[in-house]
Design a binder for these strands. Structure first.
Lengths: 165, 165
DNA sequence: TTAGATGCAAATGGTTTGCATGCGT
DNA sequence: ACGCATGCAAACCATTTGCATCTAA
């Protein structure tokens, strides 16, 4: 990461009208249509590459990806996408709350498709991220922020190392 | 940050003999001698630039610095140091437990002179870090790591934003 | 004397940007 | 058609590295 782009705080929920009820009839279970709808809901035009990236990201359940990983997957999937677009898309998705950027400090930026309240294990030797069930880490009493500030988010990263290296 | 260097886990304490008793007589309170001793204790040769950087870092109480900040301070203090040496020194200090690298994900790496158990506020707009008193955030029950792994460290970053931007 | 430190500049590598071209609405 | 999206390549910037020169022990 090179420039300081604030990690999307909380969830700056959709600017567009949230569908009143998610009754999707026969579209249910069709990832492709789900992605299209997801994009519409947040006001992003469902272009070919956004659809493809969204499909890769959200079809397989919770994931932690770097730009490079996503780019590679897209390429393998024969989806023509440039790395710049992958970066753009990841950031746009993050801005609208579809993704969450995880601060592990490593050299790369990680994006998490799970935008619910939860924290992470980080395996240092492998640069590998995994979710910790929300129930498993309890942040006791949140600290009182200084005057004029409020808590945007609390990140907990539990760093793991191999037992007795 | 460009390459993935694992954040120094726990505190890989000194390789050298820890002084049996810190009875320092008239040296007490002299930051310069303290730094020299600190370096000796961890087995680092007290060179001119390490002394100077150590003095800048540790004389003023708890601090959070980036390589650039430390470099600038040293330069202002008329201490001839190259940026590369600042990086080297920061990492060496971190390896021996004199510093602690903080993962805020930002574009830069932060180093904290407070290596005791504590967590951080991070003010997103200002890229500013501050300590949270250890008592103020309670990580309830630490999560159970996967088989074969143990917890190296738990990092908690409380991200702050200005109230009602 | 000599292993370890330092400085400089060049290389690295993730990420961003500028601008011409493409595509969804 | 209009304007956002995309691709490419160059720019960026924090950090690292190679190597020749110094310096603490």
């Amino acid at each position: 990461m090179t420039q300081s782009r604030p990690i999307a705080p909380g969830v700056p929920l959709p600017t567009l009208q949230p569908r009143p009820a998610p009754l999707r009839g026969d579209l249910t279970g069709c990832p492709w249509h789900d992605v299209k709808e997801k994009l519409r809901e947040v006001g992003l035009r469902p272009t070919r590459q956004r659809m493809a990236l969204g499909w890769i990201l959200f079809a397989k359940g919770d994931r932690h990806v770097t730009a490079e990983m996503l780019f590679e997957e897209a390429t393998h999937a024969k989806v023509p996408v440039s790395l710049a677009t992958v970066y753009n898309t990841l950031h746009q998705f993050t801005e609208v709350g579809l993704l969450r950027q995880v601060a592990v400090d490593g050299s790369k930026a990680y994006f998490d498709t799970n935008n619910t309240e939860h924290h992470h294990f980080f395996i240092e030797d492998q640069n590998d991220l995994m979710d910790i069930p929300a129930s498993d880490v309890v942040v006791g009493k949140p600290p009182i922020p200084p005057e004029g500030y409020e808590i945007a988010r609390i990140d907990v990263v539990v760093r793991l190392r191999r037992k007795q290296g």
